[in-house]
Amino acid sequence: MKELSVENLHVTIADQEIVRGLTLRVPRGEVHALMGPNGSGKSTLAKVLAGHPDYQVTKGKVMMDGENLLELEPDERARRGLFMAFQYPSEVPGVTIANFLRAAIQSRLPEGEELEATDYYAKLYEKMELLGMDRSFTSRAVNEGFSGGEKKRTEILQLAMLEPKYAVLDETDSGLDIDALKTVAHGVNSLRGPDLGVLLITHYQRLLNYIIPDHVHVMVAGRIVRSGRKELALELEERGYDWAREGAAEPVLR
């Protein structure tokens, strides 16, 4: 089965359990939204999927197309097709977007194979146009001095260039004005297709007006309490997270 699957995942940081028995499946070709209040463990899940060293997985499994992700280094996960758009992307001083992405793509090529520069730039410019980014951006250092919106666009640009099998978008909508949100959503929508599975993490329903998910999951206190079709997001917006908690199969700690 081509899917990103999380099974009964438990995660702690500094002896505190943040994710408490989370189970989730994102098949390739689908967009799943993961919604939840602040502190529910959404971002922790994203970081654990990507392999952040600060978090400890105490129990559970994470598989990508049948391969155990938890045994792999963050860069190995990335090269095998996992992408994460960061909520707070790091600055990489002095390294231009063009050079950074080039190194990232080069790392995916077999040894001895060199990236063809003209093809690379043609693709880069095409994707930048899609995201309404000026070409001069390529020579700016990654995220250095970028506005919130510029950072998020750059994350989606990287997603478009790296062509992963699964993308985890962590609060990509936060800090965006409506125009930037539309551009980012347009970018993500253009990448949708049978070869990409998306886990869209968001606090607000707003983003889901522009990126229509196939499924919606609600996460509260470290686990999924409700799952449904896209209408669930609207219902949640109307009734609030307390309603979601009440509907949980078993009591949820607050």
């Binding site: 990507a50 392999g51 952040h52 060293p53 280094e73 963050p74 860069d75 996960r77 990335a78 090269r79 992408f83 994460m84 960061f86 992307p89 790091s90 600055e91 990489v92 950074f100 992405l101 190194a103 990232a104 793509i105 790392s107 995916r108 990287q158 790296l162």
Partner: peptide
């Protein structure tokens, strides 16, 4: 964090 970010894009440490 910067190294993790770069690793997430496929670069080794």
């Amino acid at each position: 964090e910067q190294i993790f970010y770069m690793q997430q894009r496929g670069l080794t440490e």
